[in-house]
Amino acid sequence: MTAALELSAIHLRHGPNHVLRGVDLRLQGGELVGLIGPNGAGKSSLMQVIAGTQRRDGGSVRIAGIDLDADPLAARAALGVAVAPERLPALLSGRQCIELVADLRGQRDGLEQSWALAERLGFAPWLDHPVHACSLGTRQKLAIVQALIGRPPLLLLDEALNGLDPLAARALKDELRQRADAGSAVLLATHGLEVAERFLDRAVLLLDGRIAADWDRDCLRDFRADPRGGLEFAVAERLRGAHSS
C-alpha cells in the first residue's frame, strides 16, 4: 500500500547547527499522527521540509508515492498545508483567499464543502472581511479551511489548534477524524500532549532533530490509563534522559 508520506534520512542544517539529523517517518492513509517535541526540536522545520518550502541537506520526501523533487507539482497537489496565520495576505478577504486556492488546485467545484467547513468552524461571518481585520484565531480558521480544500491525501497542520475557541477546536477535530476515516493522513505538530493522547492515533516525539519515540494507538490508550500522567510523563522522562546525556 502506498504511504501517504514517506520521509527517508532527512537532514537539515542551519549553518553549523544540525536541525534535523536523519529523520525517517512513514504515515499510512487514515492515520492521525501528532508530531510533538520541545521548542527548537525541529518540528516546524520538518513540516516545512515536507511542504517543500525549506531546502533540505539530505534525504527524500515522497507524498502519496510521488517524489517531491521529481514531480513537485503533483506532490504539492497531494498535500494540504495550513500556512502560518501571519503569512496570509492582509488585504484580501477570506473568501478571496479560499476561492483563489481552490482555483489554483482545480477544486472550484468543491467550494461548497469549504463554505460548510467555514460555517462549522465559526469562520463564516468573517469570510468577507479583509484578513488584517481578523483576529489570530480567525486567521487560523482561514488557514485551516484553505488547507482542507479538496481531499488531499496528506494534511500538514502546524499548531493548528492554537488560538481556536473550544467549539472550533471540536469541529476541527471532528473534521480531521472524518478525513482520516476517508483515507487521508494527517500530521499535526502540537505542544498539546493531552490532545495527542486523547485524539490522535499515533504520537511521534522529535528531539534534537531525531525521532526519539514513536507511540502507536495502543501505547496512547495505555497512557490514558496511566495514573502518573501518561504521555506527559513519558515525554518528560525522555527529555530528562536527553538532557542528562
Partner: peptide, 18 residues
C-alpha cells in the same frame, strides 16, 4: 488531485488587490 497548470496565482492576487 489535479492542480491547474496554467493558473498564475500571483497575477490573480494582484488583480484581487487592485
Amino acid at each position: 488531485m489535479s492542480a491547474r497548470a496554467d493558473f498564475d496565482p500571483h497575477s490573480a492576487v494582484r488583480a484581487l488587490l487592485w
